[in-house]
Design a protein around this nucleic acid. Structure first.
Length: 135
DNA sequence: GCCAACGTTGGC
DNA sequence: GCCAACGTTGGC
């Protein structure tokens, strides 16, 4: 079972929109490292949903429901998309500043490499963030 | 709106 | 294959 964190700008696609839709495809990735991470996702993997630009917080937990397939929004075969569905809305969004304060999260790509939009998490990192979000 | 960080592109 | 220039992203 894999653990991931994906970023979305709320005005493009927000957590609330995902709740309303019930399921969405995660596309538009145009960065090789993020693409490689997408391709490594498997159905059933857990995905934290982070709002960038506005909010700056992890707001919910989603699940991969379809592993990587060619991105339907482009003819370029290099890019892929996955399908995700919402699992749980965090009672208390975990903000970026909270993440930065947590010693166990200092290796997060979110903190070290701000512009990566899809990144892997360890099981512990996932658990730490979710525990904060439920507190 | 600004600026720093990073990835990608293209000339040599 | 190197490296400078450029574009994009995202925090502040």
């Amino acid at each position: 079972m894999g653990y991931w964190l994906v970023k979305s700008e709320p005005y493009k696609y927000s957590w609330e929109q995902l709740l309303k839709d019930g399921r969405t495809y995660w596309d538009g990735v145009r960065n090789y490292e993020a693409r490689n991470n997408l391709q490594a996702m498997k159905s059933g993997d857990a995905v934290l949903f982070y709002h960038s630009n506005e909010g700056l917080a992890v707001v919910g937990i989603a699940r991969v429901v379809a592993k990587a397939y060619p991105d339907p929004t482009t003819d370029d075969p290099r890019w892929v998309a996955v399908d995700i569905e919402p699992v749980e809305t965090l009672a208390k969004p975990v903000s970026l500043s909270d993440l930065k304060k947590e010693p166990r999260l200092q290796n997060l790509a979110l903190i070290k490499q701000g512009q990566l939009s899809v990144m892997p998490l360890t099981k512990e990192e996932f658990a730490v963030i979710v525990a904060q979000g439920r507190a």
